[in-house]
Design a binder for these strands. Structure first.
Lengths: 327, 327
DNA sequence: CTGAAAGCGCTAACAA
DNA sequence: TTGTTAGCGCTTTCAG
């Protein structure tokens, strides 16, 4: 800035960062005024250069866009990073290998403190080359090869809690409309479903679980099957399936929850909070995933046990569940 | 890096950036090998320092999260920025004044090339202090005070096109379920609605336009009113209202589109593409907004006329419109 | 209390 | 074809 303030650079540095250095009132004042007048801003890059470390955190995502709530990961990461004085460098790679590689090396060149690598749906990944060069944590995904710290949703506890909401109301025949796509979500939620049944002393009846396309169409198409099972409650793999199920049920003049109780998964606001009746569901903790991701990156949280850190999926009870009219 | 390669820094600089400088094969090779061995990465911050300009673009958003598609703005901005060698610094402020101010000054300190300031719904804003210090473009909002470049959706053309889809199928009594929230969207879409009627030679009947809460509940509650108007087609302020309307109609055993044709706005994928029947709508061009925002920021696009640059809202015809059964 | 000087990693003349 | 040198804007000893 300016020794237009009539002092040396080091003096300026001291007052700007107010280090412990004892600086006289007059000098201090002169600097303040010069800052004011010149509209001076310290140059963060020069600062980082000399400090040898930046305040950047990289976030590379395979799809900021594809799914409505994926943005929540960024949001959570950003909030937590910010709180610790870090700034997020965001790169979207749309799954493109080349983009991914150049995003990562750009981050490395900016000497980021670390990199968060996130996917829009929970899955196993092959660790992109380059990530090894930096502190990395995986968000919403995990590496089967190298043991890289990872943060993922706790699918099975989520599945258990979803089922439990039905059990709590006295349902005994509970169907599960799972996805047909192989994934941690499919396996985890199924495990949770079985767990809830078991702890309730209910038998596991394979005919009660069906695999469908994980969207409205899948739920809609499954109505007849559900009706045939004479289930009184249905746990849907996600809110979209539940929405399709609502539609199908209504087409047969059946009513949620009086005829059939329904519970979803994901807590996709636009849907769950506004269906008729509003949908009880279990939330995918995207915001929390992002937040925890930076916490483990910064060493604020420690992953105790081997394997990914499982983040709880909170229940969001609404109005799609009631006691069964028959048993 | 290393004169461990046995050459001078400037030689390294030349081969890394391959400037036109003629460098001998041996030296070139030695540098390459040293880069390889040392895992050398040029320090972007040092480079920026000496160049006096960074390759950063700032994006401050009032809510990355709140609305599902807001993330698309980031996505579009990121893609376009990336393409021109810029990196996005993202900050979410959740509307918080303090966060906003510190986000902006952090960006200024990093000597960003410019700042994109975006809001999650189209509206007028007061320009945050500090933005004046940088090249700024407003995205999805505009300043009434200072004439800052802005990029917004073309609400009125969107409203016209939405209505036109109904007109094209021969509808003559077209209702409009507008939002009651004062906003550019409300005014623009209404203007477009009137424009379409007029150019079709249809009268504007104020009793055909109602203002509702802009979500599913609003659409649901408006069914009786719609029925009373004997409209054959309904233009809904957004897809959520349309979804509510679907629900209400079905409760009265009425069918879309045979009994009533419906068109939405926003093109909120989760909803519009999966309703029964799928919803014809007009898309809010969030991705494009972000993209154009960086283009005007970088001077690649020029805003000719005064006022915000209006980005087209494309029609997305699906299956909720048919010819009216009665006129 | 304050300033001089070295140096962070790099680029850009300019010499050699 | 390659090396030397002077900074970019800042922090940080170390002297005064």
């Amino acid at each position: 800035m300016a020794e237009a303030a009539g002092v040396s650079v080091s003096t300026v540095s001291h007052v700007v960062n107010n280090t412990g250095a004892r600086i006289g009132q007059d000098a201090r004042e002169r600097v303040r005024r010069a800052i004011e007048d010149l509209g001076y801003r310290p140059n963060a890059m020069a600062k980082n250069l000399v400090k040898g470390a930046s305040r950047f955190l990289g976030l590379v995502a395979d799809a900021i866009a594809s799914t409505p709530f994926a943005g929540q990961i960024i949001h959570g990461a950003q909030d937590e990073a910010w709180q610790h004085g870090y700034v997020l460098l965001v790169a979207n790679t749309e799954g493109n290998q080349g983009a991914e590689a150049s995003a990562i090396s750009m981050m490395l060149e900016h000497k980021v403190r670390g990199i968060l690598y996130s996917t829009w749906y929970h899955r196993a990944i092959d660790l992109p080359a380059g990530l090894a060069e930096a502190d990395t944590v995986l968000v919403n995904c995990y590496s089967t090869g190298h043991p890289v710290p990872a943060v993922v949703p706790d699918e099975s506890t989520g599945g258990r809690d979803a089922t439990q909401m039905l059990v709590d109301q006295g349902h005994q025949r509970i169907a599960f409309l799972n996805t047909r796509t192989p994934s941690p979500a499919r396996d985890g939620r199924l495990a949770g479903y079985r767990q809830a049944l078991q702890s309730a002393g209910l038998p596991f009846d394979p005919s009660l679980v069906a695999e469908v396309q994980p969207d409205q169409e899948g739920g809609y198409a499954a109505v007849d099957h559900i009706l045939a099972t004479r289930a009184t409650g249905v746990f849907c793999h996600n809110d979209r399936v539940a929405m399709g199920l609502y539609d199908g049920l209504r087409d047969r003049d059946l009513h949620v929850p009086t005829d059939v109780s329904v519970v979803g998964f994901d807590n996709q606001e636009v849907i769950a909070a506004h269906l008729h009746p509003t949908l009880s569901t279990v939330a995918l903790p995207h915001y929390e995933l992002g937040r925890r991701g930076v916490r483990v990156l910064l060493g604020l949280d420690v992953i105790e046990r081997p394997g990914p850190l499982a983040v709880a999926c909170p229940c969001v009870p609404r109005n799609s569940i009631t006691r069964p009219s028959r048993v």
